[in-house]
Amino acid sequence: MVKRQFDYEQKLKDLKAKLEELNDLSKNMQFDLSSEIEILEHKIQEDRELRYQNLVPWEKVLLSRHPERPGAVDYIAALCDEWIELQGDRCFGEDAAMIAGIGSFEGQALTILSYRKGKNTKENLQYNFGMPHPEGYRKIQRLLRQAEKFNRPVLTFIDTPGAYPGIGAEERGQAWAISQVLMTMAGLRVPVLAIVTGEGGSGGALALAVSDRLLMLANAVFAVASPEACASILWKDLERVEEMAQAMKITAQDLYELGIVDEIIAEPVGGAHLDYEATIASIKDAIRKHLPVIVGCDRDELLARRYEKLRSIGKFKTDE
């Protein structure tokens, strides 16, 4: 049976409640167990830390999709002293699955581009579960050019199951819209910092990941296609999704080793959703560390390095 929810915290809560009960009971009976209980509490804490250090990839997939995980709106609110959302693709419509605008982070104006997921059903429907239509990518395309015009660095957050697979999306050129963003970002004459904060699903997510620095939260994942899709297409067996998640090398640690991700941003024990403040503090530190370096870099050199980085990804043999 495939695990659909990461329920470790719930089980831990139950265990702690039982311990509390035991504590109360022993107090009532004037039977001092406090030192034993303390030992047990300590052991639980240790086990928890160990548990989170040894998450398997599928568990990270579940954590990265946690409905309460902080999203773009939370990050923008915490990061920016000032923020103006900009909307619309000037062709067809506004895509709420992507949030974009200009914000100020510690005095530095940034164009911030991101996917947007909801935290409840109503929001999820409104934001289409963070799955953009071509309008979303065209809005991004427009604001990338605008960032270039005003020499404003770009910050992106990546958290999406992927581009929306629908009739309208195909009719209005999903493939074309994504390809344009990829090409524009590859040659954009301003620094781009990208952070994978949740799930990065397929080409629809890659659009915002072409950057000078690609950072990734410790429990985030980034995959060529969802493990579910790969398991059903390659192995015709959805039950083997955990095995597939392992085989695909989708975790921040795997992608760091593969040279795709430049740095892993630590998450609080238990995952980002349990401690927004700590997560945001780590993200702020990461931006403070990387942004000034790329902002200070000569533009021609920046672009040459960006190209070189992309160009070097891939391994093969040569029999010539």
């Binding site: 390809s179 990829l182 090409m183 970002m185 590859a186 040659g187 397929s202 080409g203 890659l206 990941a209 072409v210 980034f222 995959a223 060529v224 296609a225 790969c230 297409i233 390659l234 695909m248 090398k249 989708i250 992608l255 593969l258 795709i260 960006r306 190209y307 992309l310 160009r311 990804i313 891939g314 391994k315």
Partner: peptide, 20 residues
């Protein structure tokens, strides 16, 4: 993209777009 090469395959989209 070729699933058997995971993210390395996905990144070829960015690589070829950069070349264009």
């Amino acid at each position: 993209a070729r699933m058997q090469e995971g993210m390395i395959a996905l990144m070829q989209m960015a690589k070829t777009s950069a070349a264009v």
